[in-house]
Simulated assay, not measured.
Amino acid sequence: MLLLMVSGYALAQSVTLRGAGSTFAAPIYTQWFAEYKKETGVSVDYQAVGSGAGINALKNRTVDFGATDAPLTDSDLKQMPFPVVQIPTLGGAVVMTYNLPGVGSGLRLTPEIIADIYMGKIKKWNDPRILAINFIKNLPDLPIHPVHRSDASGTTYIFTSFLTKAVPEWAKQIGSGKSVSWPVGIGGQGNPGVTANIMRTKGGFGYVELAYAIQNHLPLASVRNAAGNFVTPSVTTTNIAIGQYIGALKKDIRTPTVYAPGVNSYPICGLTYVLIYQHGGSNPGPVTKLFSWAMGEKAQEMGEKLYYAPLPPSLIKLNLAALKTVQGAQVAIGP
């Protein structure tokens, strides 16, 4: 019996799962996978290469799972070699941050101002439209240097989905997607690349996942939501926003959660997803066991400590049911 137990643990230690994709989710995935190895001996080699590259890696069958903040569309699904199960793992906020000496968090921005900065129409930090909605009146006479993603990005998908929903002119001229044709700006690879460009550029302005801004001591803008209130990004305001879409998410787990109704909803947020082949994929048992573990209370609390929004119980239940549809699934928790 002892020999069998030792052999079983050695087998678990020998498993290395491979994943690639989202930089948005990389901070929590790094912690999750380290903790999971401690508990089970299973290693996870996760490459934070961006959502687009993660989807391509799964399509090319070079990984056991992909990770994306832009769920696969019906058209995307048809291009995959096997049916794909996509489950959200957590929610998160995309924040507007900036490099303005002497200016901390709390700068107010509207969807229209953000759109016009990225369309090259607002070029200075002391533009009258910015000054008009802010209590901070000493904004510097500095050029705004907008920073965007240079790679196919789920963070860009969330950000441009927000602008598309909130600003008709943006919807007409630019639209939404993992990649768009940016009229102006500096490109950065991944959330780390955008963060680094903002930090090194006086007057820099861009969008990153909340944890990247907090960990790098960058200020956070308050963004006007659909109810007309200026809301600061946080776990609470992200949870409130996602909660507005629970009914729609039960019908289609891919439903965008941007520009949600509600007085306290933060308007630029979304879910981050993992993609697993329903059949035909590699290591389906260990992969489904890993992500059913991620649905547990401990893993979700770890996410909250890193400024991600834990999933509501109704979505966790849907996720566990979806994981069970994977051929060879090993679901670790739940009914």
Rank of each mutant, 00 (worst) to 15 (best):
A10W: 06
W125K: 05
I87H: 08
P128T: 05
V85F: 07
D74P: 03
A26S: 14
V84E: 09
Q47E: 13
D64N: 12
L17W: 03
N126Q: 06
R129Q: 14
I122L: 09
Q13H: 08
L11H: 12
P71M: 03
A20C: 02
V103E: 04
E39P: 03
A25L: 11
Y36I: 00
D76S: 01
S22Y: 06
E35F: 08
G102W: 04
G106L: 09
F24G: 08
P88M: 09
A34I: 15
L77N: 14
L17P: 08
R61D: 10
I28R: 05
A48R: 12
I117S: 07
T30A: 14
K37T: 13
F65P: 02
V49C: 08
R61Y: 01
G120C: 04
G52H: 04
D127R: 14
F33D: 07
V95T: 13
Y98I: 02
E35A: 15
R18L: 15
T110R: 01
T40Y: 01
Y98W: 04
Q86E: 15
G52C: 07
D74N: 09
T16G: 12
G104N: 07
K78S: 10
K124L: 14
R61A: 11
L58P: 02
I28F: 02
K123S: 05
I87L: 08
T89Y: 06
E39N: 10
A25H: 12
D76W: 01
Y29Q: 05
I114C: 07
D116I: 04
P83I: 00
D45L: 10
A67L: 05
T68I: 00
T89G: 12
I28S: 03
G54D: 04
W32T: 07
T62N: 00
S14M: 12
F82M: 04
G52F: 01
T89W: 02
V42N: 08
A20Y: 05
Y98A: 06
V15G: 06
Q79K: 15
A26Y: 08
I28Y: 04
G19M: 06
A70P: 09
P128W: 02
S105C: 09
K37M: 11
S22R: 03
N60D: 15
P83H: 13
I113E: 10
G50H: 01
P128I: 00
G91T: 07
T89P: 01
A57D: 11
T40V: 13
Y118S: 09
V103Q: 05
D45A: 00
W125A: 06
G66A: 03
F65I: 01
W125R: 05
A12P: 02
T62A: 04
R61M: 14
K123V: 13
W125G: 10
D74L: 13
G54E: 00
G21D: 01
V44I: 13
K59F: 04
P111E: 00
Q79G: 12
N126P: 12
L107P: 10
G91F: 04
M119G: 05
L100W: 03
